[in-house]
Design a protein around this nucleic acid. Structure first.
Lengths: 241, 241
DNA sequence: GTTCTTACTTTACAACCGTTAGCTCATCTG
DNA sequence: CAGATGAGCTAACGGTTGTAAAGTAAGAAC
């Protein structure tokens, strides 16, 4: 059994330059090198939205996207995982803004504000399914502590990863909205944390399943969301007169 | 600007045989060739559970896993997507069995049966997060009609893909369980379909988020599930005497 | 004007991947 | 026993990826 174990490789192949195809990006000015860091994150995000999956984010693909050479990324990020972490941080920020904006146009009624925020969450997710998916799909494996240098200083979970620390801001908005309903006597919830968690779970499930199974006979989204939010938030059937 | 466009490649590399490392699988008997089809699906599933992601399923990895040569797969599946489809079909089947089993030990009370099925769903998901994830993460793209030859004959969605046809069985169990609660006067739901959808969405969200964010302060799972199922199913506070 | 430094490139390597073409070898059929 | 056929193999092509090493262009500092 002659096993050609010695995998000898002679490869005479040149990588394509970044200049071909894509518009070549012009070099940053002297002090502005950090600007490329932002562009890398933007490029990765654009790639995700265009291709529909985060698997499209490879160092080379990102480099092509923004018109630089692949190894140039190493000056800004140590590896792919850290790029993705920065992407996640940015998308969580966008999510928080979307919720705040939806809530802002909802008036003063605490229940309406709660519902509006939830509808905003779902609308955000459905507006960019791939972008939303990265929030909770990152296997944060093989990721050392260097993420601290590239993201805001978040708290660390018990397993040493930044886990939900990212979503904390959005989740806090939800807890706060429910608490206001409780305080104003509109909800008979006795555990804002647990009930917020239930709402969050349902919101996430809605986005996740609606994008994964578009063929399912889904009810009209806003009313569907409203109905389950009211029940999970233990909103009273009749407002107190 | 001399651009070495002509990417001439001289590659003198031999692939590794499947025999090295892995235990070489012994050839199937004459009529039993189809047995490898099952083994390929099992191998892909094992790979998913071990590596934690379906990205680990490459033709070569599956071949290594079960001790065959990569090209041998082509006699059984035309491409990776079809293998994944068969995996999804099998996992959905496992899910249905898990729900049925959980329900079987729940006694006769329709509410308890509903809750037990839901807890079974969540327990199944948490028992094998990667396995569960494939159910709803497959981008069914670039997948021609040949899936019909490898899975049970499912209905086709409006976009020509088998989409939710897979989960239909599990979902039907849920609708049925809720309908029994309605019929026995324990639920005041007037739309079993919509309320089942809400429950499904919450169940999926629970599994998805609990595995994605294990660092979050999750409530005890069974009670958490029971609480939101009762509310979403519009179960009466007091059983009728 | 020389030197230093920043912000990148180019080139190359080693390891994967899917897929094709053609081969081997045991077993069943006549 | 001859031949067909099923079941799986080897070898190879052309492509992808991450990443190391070394090179270069332009502006700032002296």
């Amino acid at each position: 059994m002659r096993n050609p174990r010695a995998d000898s490789v002679i490869q005479v192949k040149g990588d394509r330059q970044p200049s071909e195809g894509r518009p070549k990006r012009q070099r940053n000015a002297r002090g502005q090198g950090a600007r490329l860091t932002e562009d890398i994150v933007s490029g990765a995000l654009a790639l995700i939205e265009r291709e529909g999956t985060d698997e499209a984010v490879t160092l080379r693909a990102v480099a092509r996207e923004i018109g630089i050479a692949a190894p140039s990324i190493y000056a800004h990020f140590p590896d792919r995982a850290t790029i993705m972490l920065a992407v996640v941080a940015r998308v969580f920020d966008e999510l928080t803004q979307a919720i705040l904006q939806a809530r802002a146009v909802a008036g003063d009624d605490p229940v309406e504000r709660l519902v509006a925020g939830c509808e905003g969450y779902v609308a955000f997710g459905l507006r960019g399914p791939a972008r939303y998916r990265v929030l909770f799909s990152e296997r944060r494996l093989g990721l050392d502590d260097s993420w601290r240098d590239y993201c805001e200083p978040f708290e660390i979970g018990p397993d040493g990863s930044p886990v939900l620390a990212f979503g904390a801001e959005s989740f806090a908005l939800l807890v706060q909205a429910l608490s206001e309903c409780i305080a104003s006597g509109r909800s008979r919830s006795t555990d804002a944390m647990a009930d917020s968690t239930a709402i969050w779970v349902a919101l996430h499930g809605t986005v996740s399943l609606k994008t994964a199974a578009p063929g399912f006979p889904w009810p009209e989204p806003d009313d569907f969301v409203r109905q389950f939010v009211l029940r999970l938030a233990r909103i009273m059937p009749e407002p107190p007169t």
